[in-house]
Design a protein around this nucleic acid. Structure first.
Length: 271
DNA sequence: CAACGGACCTGCCTGC
DNA sequence: TGCAGGCAGGTCCGTT
């Protein structure tokens, strides 16, 4: 499922097709997402012009003059541009028709994603209110991590994946950034030297920026809004590579579990 | 409060 | 071929 690079890839794919276009018709085929879709959504959107598509953390923000549609892709969600007459697929839950030829479809087999309408500033919405800084923005650096780690015993990986500390770093990129920074995922956060947090912050930025350039990572089912897979999978050093040779040393990538999430690291390269 | 486990849901893969 | 079990990119919530 989508982490920040996949969400950003989706946003960039949708933007040129939809921004400035007026909503003609909305159909909610399945409102039972992570949170129920507002039954008033069609009435709220019809006839309105989409002003911008922004991203905050892994949330997509569809801005209208009178409010914002907050979207999340959960573990298995995707958004694609189709023609209204294109064949529907199983798990196509919401259809938003813009021009005669362009329709946005929300597809999500596991239904962990959602679409929420809000008329307030989306930054103040309960889902977004407590989020930490953007990893690619100016407010994120080694001190962000070092400050959050002070006095805490959680694993470095859990800290990195805590959205109150920094947003957008999911399981793939947490594993990858820790490998690139040479930090063992299980190391207690409070016992990591400041210089190593600086290094980790740099690697987080690099791995996310690089993944965005590659259109994200496709493991099983992620497709960008154009239906193309992401190619960053070819750059993965440790994720999903348990038992395989390390790409940097003579060792073998190990798989463990931290916070109920699969965790991959090289015992030789990461301390 | 921090930390942890379980919950939500479907599909796909493995092994018997 | 069928079926049970484990696993999956995220996040929220309740309990210690």
């Amino acid at each position: 499922m989508p982490e920040l690079p996949e969400v950003e890839t989706t946003r960039r794919g949708l933007e040129p097709w939809l921004v400035g276009k007026r909503v003609r018709k909305v159909l909610v085929a399945e409102p039972r997402l992570r949170w129920p879709v507002d039954p008033q959504l069609p009435a709220l959107l019809q006839g309105r012009t989409l002003l911008a598509i922004e991203r905050r953390a892994k949330y997509l923000l569809f801005r209208f003059k009178h409010g914002t549609l907050i979207g999340h892709l959960g573990m298995s969600g995707s958004m694609r541009i189709t023609k209204p007459q294109d064949e529907t697929r199983k798990h196509d839950h919401v259809y938003i028709e813009f021009s005669r030829a362009r329709q946005l479809r929300f597809h999500d087999p596991r239904r962990f994603g959602f679409l929420l309408w809000t008329e307030q500033d989306p930054a103040l919405h309960p889902r977004l209110r407590k989020l930490g800084p953007e990893p690619l923005g100016p407010a994120f650096d080694g001190s962000t991590l070092a400050d959050a780690a002070r006095g805490r015993r959680v694993a470095a990986k859990s800290l990195l994946m805590d959205p109150a500390v920094v947003v957008g770093v999911g399981n793939i990129y947490a594993n990858e950034a820790l490998f690139r920074a040479g930090i063992r995922p299980s190391r207690p956060a409070g016992r990591i030297a400041r210089a190593r947090w600086d290094r980790l912050a740099v690697e987080v930025r690099k791995v996310l920026a690089s993944a965005i350039e590659q259109g994200g990572t496709t493991l099983r089912d992620f497709l960008g809004s154009d239906g193309e897979p992401g190619y960053f999978v070819q750059q993965l050093q440790v994720y999903d590579r348990g038992g395989e040779p390390c790409r940097r040393c003579e060792g073998t990538v190990r798989r463990t579990v931290i916070g109920q999430r699969a965790t991959y690291f090289c015992p030789g390269c990461q301390t």
